[in-house]
Design a protein around this nucleic acid. Structure first.
Lengths: 239, 239
DNA sequence: TCGTGTGTTAACGCCGTGTGAAACAAGACC
DNA sequence: GGTCTTGTTTCACACGGCGTTAACACACGA
């Protein structure tokens, strides 16, 4: 499914997930797994990795409500559960109020789906997914201003963090000192291109010896972080 | 207004209630009262007869959110609160997740409004309200406005409590002074960002010496409370 | 009137930040 | 290979932004 480990993932019904729903979940960066029933899950209840569920009840309502009922009976009965219903199913919601946390009318707007998922996750106490930027061993939490390299927390100053964030957001790309000054420092700048050098040096020092080479200098051009994802393992012969 | 058929009644903003909203509430048999602000209510706090609120935030969002904030601060801070937003306001919902329980996109279908109201009332009737906020040694009782740190009751002023509540509700997250002024104080603000500093200082003083470091300053960014739960164990090995 | 809560102003001190120069590395040219 | 040139790394230091703190000003209710 997806590569990032820390993200939210949803259980989706039915198994060939509605195309629109699948597309929106993918675009939102959520992991998801479509099932046609819960018997397959009961077999392998090893890691209930999903943090919520989205049940499309507009096609086959009866089995969909059964799935909701099963989910409510499960080990984590209060997980966020969103049902998709058609406009003429609104009346039957009242009698099934205990089977869902929120509902969405099909056809739906992708942004409404995302907004409802976010609010459900927030209410469930897990909060919105933290905005993360990562590359290799580097992980940046944009909300807490924390930087982690290979599990070790770094104590960065403001400019160091901003510089690392910019480089990590554009991995493998080379930036001239002027560009860095403009985009990170944020003002027109004359002279003092050495400022970038010094901050790169301090960053490398705090990254530690084994990771200091994450920031590479491209001679007479500038700096870049890591390797480009373009032809990553293509093993450039000049390397 | 409405002859109260059922015992449910809602507070509606703004005062000339949106016609569509008024009609639907009437048809649904709900009682409701439109207000343009909360100052009129504070005068006569005799019988808070409403069981919930519907705030139309699609016309004048700023004041609407202020009303939501006031409602949340009120005596019954967790009453069901539904906001009406336009389609292009979905993005701003995420940063105000604590100000509403459910939302509805305008223009709306009357039956969807009714379904959402019913579901909100059903959920409120089950008492699924988190009245407590806590982080580490901090415990806040939202009903009694009491703050406890490590078992010791604090005597906080109003703004101190609000600030601590906001920070505690979003632990580990860094907020700029401007953000704090907007979200805690609740109005647009120019100058005087030092106000936040002073209140933080007073809060730290009341937290006591051993817990004053719960509120951490992130230099040239803002303040945050505690450590993020994200990678909390990343203690520096050189320590 | 006093007492309390809240916002403002100014002084102070720290530490992040930028700068200059020296030391160093990498090619280029003869 | 030696030497010169160009560019990068490293160090030390001074300035200034930024947070802390205290003291004051104002509004409001008792």
């Amino acid at each position: 499914m997806s590569d990032v480990g820390s993200e939210e993932s949803f259980l989706v019904y039915p198994d060939p997930a509605p195309p629109e729903l699948a597309r929106c979940l993918d675009l939102g960066g959520y992991g998801w797994k479509a099932v046609d029933g819960l018997e397959s899950l009961q077999g392998a209840d090893n890691a209930p990795a999903w943090t919520g569920a989205v049940v499309a009840a507009d096609e086959s309502p009866d089995t969909a409500w059964s799935v909701c009922r099963e989910l409510r009976r499960g080990d984590v009965p209060t997980e966020p559960l969103l049902v998709l219903v058609s406009g003429n199913q609104l009346e039957e919601l009242e009698s099934r109020a205990e089977l869902f946390d929120d509902f969405l009318i099909t056809p739906f707007h992708p942004r409404e789906l995302e907004a409802r998922l976010k609010h459900l996750l927030w209410r469930a106490g897990r909060g919105a997914r933290p905005e993360l930027v990562s590359y290799g061993p580097i992980e940046l939490n944009l909300e807490t201003y924390q930087a982690v390299v290979a599990g070790r927390t770094l104590d960065l100053t403001f400019m160091e963090y901003e510089l690392l964030r910019f480089l990590t957001s554009n991995p493998g790309r080379v930036f001239t000192r002027e560009t860095l000054l403009n985009r990170v420092w944020g003002y027109e700048y004359y002279g003092g291109a050495r400022t970038v050098d010094v901050h790169v040096r301090r960053l490398r020092a705090k990254l530690g010896e084994e990771h200091s080479n994450l920031i590479q200098t491209v001679r007479s051009v500038g700096y870049k972080l890591g390797q480009s994802r373009w032809r990553e393992q293509g093993a450039d012969p000049a390397e």
